[in-house]
Nucleic acid binder design. Structure first.
Lengths: 356, 356
DNA sequence: ATCGCTTGTGTGAACGCTCACCCTGCAACC
DNA sequence: GGTTGCAGGGTGAGCGTTCACACAAGCGAT
């Protein structure tokens, strides 16, 4: 039995007090940075703490303060660039503020696992819960649970979010419009859409943006092709779109699917962007390094993650819910979009692979 | 001030005891599933618990048992498919075993943030720590900290792992050899390598596998081209490799970089696989849906994540460290590899985009 | 009838903190 | 010179569990 060589017994606040020649309460004042401690006394305590390698027990502290300094993080879906990046930056921000993050991610956001996850978090007495999930149903399930703690959702759809749920998001609607307007400016008239998964809030907003931009320009609106975020579904739609001779451009709800679409089109002999322009969404790192480099809409997930934490923090401090502004995405022009064959470009087009 | 409508006061074990007409100790027995409680009594207690919506306080429990039922998870690097997938499945397995996971991910695995992260986890009295990091230095920093709890590393390099660190990994060396052998069987003689980041354990193992396979076949070994895992670095090397007329195949240490390499080669007019075969590593979801679909080596990150948790569990239960077997990757043949121009294929080659 | 064992249950003491309160000096004020 | 005020520090209770033990009843063996 390999005994883990921890000190015979971890020191507690009384051990520190004894060593420093003060009362436990003074030690408490020092570790909590409270006033009314003479510098000299403080010094002695600090030295004793260091000497004993004392670490306050979060359990004892939580027991009496009723605050755990732990945040719950729930995320659903196959790990994706967007969710992972948001989560990492949320975690980082939390750590910088000395909050722990109890993470409960799951591939399938079914009600049962979701409830189990929430239960586990609540059982830990997390101070708040943040959900990074694009699934409308997942968010609804969570909102229907009696949480007893604040809830922050990283979710794009306003309709799915209750009044007592705090929200942070991108303006996906405008982002999608931006993308479609770009295609329109290039001269495209028949612009198709491959949408994200059914039940996805982002997919809904992006499709709505596509529809609105076409309507604004009084262009025809064909039914959207329902994808599921996977490259495979993009590929399938790419194959079928190759037979759609009227269409000259397609706005795809995500980069991953867009690459699938491109592959499908190309495998049927349709060239991108000469025959068909393809536009993605997200700006994943790979987008600039495929053939041709993908025009897309960039979302700053790092900032989103940090924003989620700031919002959580201000909610916890009851600072009447900060700005619910929704960050604007940025259009990234690359080589997968061009004027339709025979059309006159209405705008100069950059074809350098890299943006920024 | 929107008062969060939690019950005036959460019930504790005495409230339950009173309602059930038993002592608090009997309630404790019931919630911990201990014997020596009459079924009838147990029932009354269970009902009281349900009625009061009683949830045991983890803080109080941890205070007395000295076990938190919380696991620490540290991960470094830009969020990637591999790390994220491993982490998600680790978390899922932990949740199923009713363990909470305190996650601390960071983009930069520098010693300072790493230490802060570990400190935070230790401050929470996690029962064990698992590191999902490919950076040799990160692992070393962590191993040099006096943890006091078991450490499980998801790391491929044996040399970097101390005796008291438990380890779970893929056999990356064999995986890389597999890939290179595939290229050799196709008839390639000059096989280049674009390696992963400096200081990456996976990169080291993969390069070692490449080198060994070439040596075994008595083929020439050119210096490896050092990448950094980013598609951009792959692209740069693809550009320069396009000028290397001797080489007919390149084994790239990751799919993301491999796509960059392909793009670089193609943008210089070199066709894949007709002029150059390209082989990746990881089998990311996109690999099958690019042009051409990427031959690669598949790693089952989901299983890796679950394995990491199983190992952790057996370590916690002192079941003398389970098998340190390293899972074998699987070769996936797609269309980016083919016999070199003019050579006779030594093996039938599948070109269907999808494997499995 | 006595002893011991088992089963079911209760009692009180930790665990390691924070909180509310109390105490002691010393300087400042009337 | 008495009173106030405040800086600096101490005391004891309580948070909600589990753990070690005590105890009572029932039953079979001596």
């Amino acid at each position: 039995m390999t005994q883990h060589d921890k000190q015979a017994k971890a020191a507690n606040i009384f051990d520190v007090a004894r060593l420093a020649g003060v009362s436990h309460q003074t030690v408490s004042r020092v570790i909590n940075d409270l006033p009314n401690v003479r510098p000299a006394t403080r010094d002695r305590v600090v030295k004793a703490i260091a000497q004993l390698r004392y670490v306050p027990s979060p359990a004892a502290r939580a027991l009496v303060t009723k605050r755990s300094r732990v945040l719950g993080l729930v995320s659903t879906g196959v790990p994706s660039f967007s969710v992972s990046t948001t989560a990492v930056h949320f975690t980082t921000a939390a750590r910088e503020a000395r909050y722990a993050v109890s993470a409960s991610s799951m591939v399938s956001g079914d009600a049962t696992s979701l409830r189990a996850a929430i239960e586990l978090l609540l059982g830990q007495k997390v101070e708040a819960i943040v959900v990074i999930s694009d699934e409308r149903e997942a968010l609804e399930v969570i909102q229907n649970i009696e949480l007893g703690v604040p809830l922050v959702a990283v979710a794009s759809e306003l309709a799915a979010v209750r009044e007592d749920t705090h929200q942070v998001a991108f303006n996906q609607f405008e982002g999608a419009s931006l993308a479609v307007e770009h295609l329109i400016e290039l001269g495209h008239r028949e612009i198709r859409h491959v949408s994200g998964a059914v039940g996805s809030m982002n997919a809904g907003e992006r499709e709505r943006g596509w529809r609105a931009a076409l309507a604004d320009a009084k262009l025809p609106i064909a039914p959207a092709l329902a994808g599921d975020w996977s490259p495979a579904s993009g590929y399938e739609h790419g194959l079928s779109l190759a037979g759609d001779s009227a269409m000259t451009a397609v706005f795809v709800a995500s980069d991953e699917m867009a690459l699938g679409v491109m592959h499908g089109l190309q495998s049927q002999g349709r060239r991108v962007p000469e025959d068909v322009s393809v536009m993605g969404f997200d700006d994943i790192p790979l987008a600039a390094y495929v053939n041709p480099p993908l025009s897309t809409v960039r979302l700053d997930f790092a900032t989103l993650g940090r924003d989620a934490f700031s919002l959580l923090l201000s909610v916890l401090q009851d600072e009447d819910a900060a700005d619910p502004t929704r960050r604007m995405p940025a259009l990234i022009r690359r080589a997968s979009t061009a004027p339709p064959a025979g059309a006159v470009a209405m705008q100069r087009q950059s074809v350098t692979g890299r943006a920024r």
